[in-house]
Design a protein around this nucleic acid. Structure first.
Length: 546
RNA sequence: GGCCUGUUCGUCCAGUGGUUAGGACGCGGCCCUUUCACGGCUGAAACACGGGUUCGAAUCCCGUACGGGUCACCA
């Protein structure tokens, strides 16, 4: 039986394909996993999640993680998506070992890794199915299929192309030839072997055994344009690419029996399947899958723009995969999270709700543990892509920028106030003179509003006597004494003991200095801020304000 | 609607027949303190519901309710 949807190259026998894609030479227990995105625009956080799971599972076992581009629907394909996917994976340290490594460039012996390039392979397999009687051509039009569904609805029978409803299933060769001769478009369908009330039990790595009704649908294998459907491509590819563990979203659970049937008809041992639950989000009183359409945080690009450290995103995801990661992290400070073993068997069956506050917390801890240099490098890289004006200032004087970032970063209890790099311009902008200057109107207003008001001459007095060579204790002692001469109690206790005798206490004085030097009342340790600003800036700012 | 699947604090997880049901995030309070963070202490907060089985059930069984998924020539 020869048809016009088959390409002339589709002439491999199954044996030839077996020889061309031999079993992989890997250690015992090694797992081969894959990520199979369809290039339809952007990279979803769920894809990152699945990739993380898959890649770790493969690497932990000495196996291979590969990337397969599932571009069998040319109508939905968006140019440039593959590059974007590759970049996203690379950003988060999840680059594939095999497959399309760079846009258009492949690595590995089981390719091509782009499904549209594997047409002859799928079609050869379909030819075999046709020869075995496990598949047949179907010429039903869209209208006929719709009529079928309407009739099924009327008879209160499950919708679909199955059993006696499968109109082309048992047509004669003459009918087929006639339709072919008339040039009618057609598809190739599976001739399902599932019995009417037959039930099957299928294993799932996460859910153990699941019982289903056997598949009865004569699913489309080859579309009218000669491209395979997901179902066929999945079975053929995961067999010939020698995948050992299919990790995919649980939206595929329903078609699992169909896929299992296909593996069986081909006579191939199926891989293990792990259907993972998607990351969800609260929507009113119910929850739903994060969607690219309505949830910006569903796109990986969102995390990159916000400047979440890459490891923060990964560790947050690791938390969703296995809550014990947190304990592990606590006990293994500074160790790469790659050391943490994840187990598919232990993954949660329910979908996890996305929690931005938790991500922020993970990120805060992570940034808190980074060196100033590491923060600087990562933040600068982010700024160059997403905040060029800030990058210019930040990059101009690396030593100054790192000194800023090092404030309260050393020591046992580093400050944890940076969550994402995009916070930085607003957080530390005042260290840069032009930004500080631009803040002046607000700063003046804030200064005027301070209660108790700063006494005349105090700022000038501080400016003229400021000695950056003093150590912290010396500076504190000096400033307390100076404050006292202007009516500020050296500490809260003294102030509370005799509130009428003082203008305010040391905290009030520090507040004034903060506003003058930084344009705000909340800053890191004042001593360090002044050290980093340097005497010239401190004096200039104090003088200008006095 | 059929089928599949899920349901422990608001959230993420521990817990696999006997626990005062534990931790983390978030939230409240207190302490530390030059502000803010950090850190420490502390508080509120959960086994969806109903039946069984059992001396004993968050844990096992059945049912109910409520979520989610799926029923395309999309993946």
């Amino acid at each position: 039986m020869d048809h016009n949807i088959f390409t002339p190259e589709a002439a491999f026998t199954l044996d030839e394909l077996e020889a061309r894609f031999p079993p992989r030479d890997l250690p015992d227990g090694a797992r081969v996993t894959r990520f199979g995105p369809s290039p339809t625009g952007s990279m979803h956080i769920g894809g990152l999640y699945t990739s993380l799971v898959s890649r770790r599972v493969a690497h932990q076992s000495g196996g291979v993680f590969y990337l397969r581009i599932e571009d069998t629907d040319k109508k939905r394909e968006v140019e440039g998506t593959t590059g974007l996917i590759l970049a996203s994976l690379a950003t988060y340290g999840l680059s594939p070992d095999e497959g399309e490594i760079e846009d258009g460039k492949e690595e590995g012996g089981y390719g091509p890794y782009r499904q549209s390039l594997r047409k002859p392979i799928y079609q050869s397999c379909v030819r075999w199915l046709l020869e075995q009687g496990h598949a047949y051509p179907c010429f039903a039009s869209a209208e006929e299929l719709q009529a079928l569904r309407d009739a099924q609805a009327k008879h209160k029978v499950p919708p679909g192309y199955w059993g006696t409803w499968a109109i082309w299933r048992d047509k004669t060769a003459a009918d087929v030839d006639a339709a072919l001769g008339a040039g009618q478009p057609f598809v190739i369908r599976l001739r399902s072997t599932g019995g009417r009330d037959e039930r099957i039990t299928l294993p799932d790595t996460i859910r153990e055994n699941i019982e289903f009704p056997a598949n009865q649908t004569d699913v489309v294998l080859l579309k009218a344009d000669g491209m395979p459907t997901y179902h066929l491509a999945h079975v053929v590819d995961d067999h010939f690419m020698r995948t050992t563990d299919v990790v995919r979203g649980n939206e595929w659970l329903a078609s699992y029996p169909m896929h299992a049937e296909m593996f069986q008809l081909f006579g191939w041992a199926p891989p293990r399947f792990a259907h993972i639950s998607p990351i969800e989000k609260n929507d009113g009183s119910s929850r739903r899958k994060l969607s690219k359409r309505s949830d910006p945080e569903a796109s990986v690009g969102w995390y990159m723009e916000a400047g979440y450290p890459r490891q923060a995103v990964i560790e947050y995801l690791l938390n969703l995969i296995d809550g014990r990661f947190e304990d592990w992290r606590g006990a293994n400070q500074g160790v790469s999270n790659e050391e943490f073993h994840i187990e598919l068997e232990r993954m949660n069956r329910a979908g996890a709700l996305f929690d931005l506050a938790k991500l922020d917390s993970v990120s805060r801890d992570l940034v808190g543990a980074m060196s100033a240099k590491a923060v600087y490098d990562a933040a600068l890289a982010w700024a160059r892509d997403h905040a060029t004006d800030f990058a210019a200032r930040f990059g101009a004087d690396a030593a100054y920028a790192q000194a800023i970032l090092d404030i309260e970063r050393h020591g046992e209890r580093p400050r944890k106030d940076i969550v994402r790099w995009s916070d930085l311009p607003a957080d530390i902008g005042y260290f840069f003179d032009d930004i500080y200057a631009a803040m002046q109107p607000a700063t003046q207003a804030a200064l005027a509003a301070i209660q108790p008001a700063a006494p005349a001459g105090m700022l000038a007095a501080i400016a003229s006597a400021y000695d950056p060579a003093l150590d912290r204790d010396g500076w504190l002692e000096w400033l307390r004494a100076l404050g006292l001469s202007f009516g500020y109690a050296p500490n809260v206790k003294a102030f509370k003991a005799a509130p009428d005798e003082f203008r305010g206490h040391f905290g009030d004085l520090a507040g004034v200095l903060r506003v003058v030097l930084a344009g705000r009342r909340n800053t890191p340790d004042l001593f360090e801020v002044m050290q980093v600003l340097g005497k010239d800036r401190v004096v200039a700012r104090l003088t200008a304000a006095s």
